[in-house]
Design a protein around this nucleic acid. Sequence first.
DNA 1: CGGAACTTGTTACCTTTTTCACATAATCGG
DNA 2: CCGATTATGTGAAAAAGGTAACAAGTTCCG
Lengths: 214, 214
Amino acid sequence: MKADKISELTTNRLSIYLRCLNELAHEGRKTVSSDRLAKRFHLNSAQIRKDLACFGEFGVRGVGYYIEDLREQIIRILGLDHHHRVGIVGAGRLGAALTDYYGFRQTNFEVAALFDADPEKIGSVVSDVKVFDVKDFSKVRKNEGIDVAVIAVPAEYAQKVLEMIVDAGVKAVMNFAPTPLLADDDVKLKTIDLTISLESLSYFLARPGKNGRE
Amino acid sequence: MKADKISELTTNRLSIYLRCLNELAHEGRKTVSSDRLAKRFHLNSAQIRKDLACFGEFGVRGVGYYIEDLREQIIRILGLDHHHRVGIVGAGRLGAALTDYYGFRQTNFEVAALFDADPEKIGSVVSDVKVFDVKDFSKVRKNEGIDVAVIAVPAEYAQKVLEMIVDAGVKAVMNFAPTPLLADDDVKLKTIDLTISLESLSYFLARPGKNGRE
DNA sequence: CGGAACTTGTTACCTTTTTCACATAATCGG
DNA sequence: CCGATTATGTGAAAAAGGTAACAAGTTCCG
């Protein structure tokens, strides 16, 4: 198949498949069929095959997929074999929580620096990570080789912070401020909007009877 | 129109519309057309009208929407006129950050209790919220009138914690553990999976040239 | 009052995403 | 070696989601 325009839905599912494979590998299994994988983790087998087919033919008919091999393929596809250095803008509670977040380490991301505008925070250290003046972002970015930025500041500052981050040359940004941001097409911006998720829960609670799986 | 099966994408967008309307109201505007709203906030006017049409006819042809009126309608639709009490399981950094999260207060959610298994944390207070023994979840839930739970524990405990939460009668759960969880259809489960988002960024970084808007 | 200017609600159309179904290929046991 | 079994990869169908176009209703202004 080798489609050249891969949907984000597909790459998101690759993450999930990888996790499932990790679990199976941990149990000592060697091979798995798309059907087994689907049944076990409540996925759709055709979708698994199709998602994988975008990147090559990894399976063996009659056998299934070699777990260890497929794991390595997905790791390569997702670029998880490359190390990334993260700069978190906003050293409040959220920034601190993210600095500690185990998922960063797990996925080959490393928090290299925190940034804040508050003079009381600048210079301090959170979980072994130094807090820099946000004004020095561009300089620190170069010194530390930061290639991923996280926005963990109040909504009203988010757009300005994003522009600063992009001006400094960072191409991948994760935004936790509950506001949609605008960036150029060559910048990958991923917004995690807790407010939307909360209001979605609220909607459900206001309407007992309707169900909801995410 | 009055569709009876509302997509989550639609309710998510209602959250966004509400935010936009808040901003316009703040500026003192009285009415707004779907076209204006769309242009200003980079949305699609047909989609706005269609989303709203699911719930009734709120606009006036030739005029547009009365901002204050539409705000109230969306607040009602999303159930944001009801107060909710939140219990956060996991009093680590993430749990603490969420306890402080301004978005909770903004959306009529109130963090009523934290829960943890660590004896050192039990009994302590984080941002005016008491940390209870996770074993007492069911009891505390009743006393405190908790109707929403947040899972902020490591992935390996998440499914067990979810089952405990559901057994205690909570029907709306937000999960931050990077693992897909299984629950009955009458429970609304919303997973915020940072790992998937990170790996999506990683995929992008491994493939310079392809763009990505979220 | 009547036509021009707006703007909604809705239908029809198009695109994307998911699911189904099956030809094709590998393995196994006898 | 061959039929039975297992499973992939993929094209075709179905479902979901998004966009465009327009009839119908409202206001404005002469």
